[in-house]
Design a protein around this nucleic acid. Structure first.
Length: 418
DNA sequence: TCTGGGGTCCTAGGACCC
DNA sequence: TCTGGGGTCCTAGGACCC
């Protein structure tokens, strides 16, 4: 048996923990660059606001109803997330962290699962102030679905155990939502399924496997099996080795100057290389991309993407940076209104699985340098030391973040004063 | 003019997730 | 005026090999 536990409106709930005055007020959290709404509380949904809506389209509504608006504060959400995961891990033998706000828990060997669900839920609320919901079921897909229902049916009080339902009620539960609400069935697949008359999760669970095989990829068959209670999607407590590291940001304003792009690419390269070292990995392929403003129809659109194989596995900033800058030289075209740039590291291995190049004496120097930079930035705050290209440009490329809350839990200078 | 079978690897694009 | 970021997996098609 598995549980899927997630924080309700997680980012907004994190903000509320430190702003009790917002408890009953609508709250929304924005994407980077203060662009779109990415998280909303129930009160905000009730006003008709939707996830994904650009902020500027709903400015009036937000003003009229005094909606509290926050820029994203990943320092805070990341820290609250690890606290929540730690609480959950203290109750169950194994946890698979699935995203910043949710995890699967392996419940094998445990008893009284429903009351355990309630206990976990109330401990999370008591200890860190985040409201959470719990779905419990024999497969991950069903646990996810139970969680979905627990969030929507107030009578369940935040916890639903599939095995508490009679077979009749299980059928009803599967028939009461649209097929697109199932984990793994997105807009495209649900449209195709609905054309075949498969409208609800129940329909999908009863569909003939032969038909599904003919018309859909393998994951749809697995999902259908999981809905029947047959485990087809593995529980993975160990995070699989990541395959890529990507850092990118949209710019606050359109950028035309190559120096601005250089600054952005430099910053992303530094950060991406920093992730490599933090996770004790090395990468063999470095790529960048620069994109024009896709909403500006009157100016030329441009997608510049390229990457280079380094021949050896590296994790130092100077090497990554060097290649990123060379790629920018190749891709840059003048006269384009650029809106976004990013750096991608691929072909990744753990450090201990990669051999240093025996004759590359410089490698060790660069690694030492990078380690020193990491230490200084860890001790005195990120950005204390950086490569000069980052500072050698205008402000256009930087991110907009006008309504960010303090880093209450991770910076002494920003701790809440009472 | 005819023109096999079996395999791997890589890449791009699409779909999905949060 | 303002429109997010970071991932994974699957599939098809092409290149290449014996």
């Amino acid at each position: 048996m598995y549980a899927l536990i997630d924080g309700n409106s997680f980012y907004a709930s994190c903000e509320r923990v430190f702003r009790p005055d917002l408890r009953h007020r609508p709250v929304v959290v924005l994407s980077n660059n203060d662009g779109c709404i990415v998280t909303l509380t129930a009160e905000a949904k009730a006003l008709g606001l939707k996830r994904g809506t650009p902020l500027f389209q709903v400015k009036d509504l937000i003003k009229r109803h005094k909606v509290a608006v926050f820029s994203s504060n990943y320092e805070l959400y990341g820290d609250m997330s690890s606290r929540m995961m730690a609480i959950i891990a203290s109750f169950v033998p194994e946890v698979e962290v699935y995203s910043i706000d949710e995890c699967f828990a392996n419940l094998s060997g445990l008893k009284n699962l429903t009351s355990l669900g309630f206990e976990i839920r109330s401990k999370i609320f008591q200890w860190i102030g985040i409201p959470a919901c719990v779905g419990i079921a024999p497969t991950k897909t069903l646990a996810k679905y139970c969680n979905h229902l627990a969030k929507r049916v107030p009578a369940l009080k935040g916890v639903l155990n599939w095995n508490d339902l009679t077979p009749e009620r299980q059928k009803k539960a599967l028939a009461c939502q649209r097929v697109g609400e199932i984990w793994g069935i997105g807009a495209q697949l649900s449209r195709r399924l609905e054309k075949l008359g498969i409208l609800t999760p129940l329909d999908l669970s009863l569909a003939s496997e032969g038909l599904l095989r003919e018309c859909f990829p393998i994951n749809v068959i697995q999902t259908a099996r999981e809905l029947r209670g047959l485990e087809s999607i593995e529980f993975e407590p160990e995070a699989p080795l990541r395959q890529r590291i990507l850092r990118s940001r949209s710019f606050a304003n359109d950028v035309f100057d190559k120096n601005d792009l250089l600054s952005a690419v430099t910053m992303h390269a530094e950060e991406a290389a920093g992730v490599l070292r933090k996770e004790r990995l090395r990468a063999k392929r470095v790529g960048i991309f620069i994109l024009s403003n896709r909403f500006k129809l009157e100016s030329p659109s441009y997608v510049g993407v390229d990457s280079v194989d380094l021949g050896t596995y590296v994790c130092d900033t100077p090497t990554v940076l060097n290649h990123a800058v060379k790629l920018l030289d190749r891709l840059f075209k003048p006269g384009i209104a650029y809106k976004k740039a990013g750096v991608v590291l691929e072909d990744i291995k753990p450090q201990e699985e990669t051999a240093f190049d025996l004759f590359a004496f410089e490698d060790e120097k660069k690694s030492t340098l990078s380690a020193v930079l990491d230490d200084l930035n860890a001790k005195y705050g990120s950005g204390t030391i950086c490569f000069s290209a980052v500072k050698r440009s205008s402000e256009d490329w930087k991110m907009r973040r006008a309504m960010k809350s303090p880093s209450y839990t991770t910076r002494f200078s920003e701790v809440l004063k009472v």
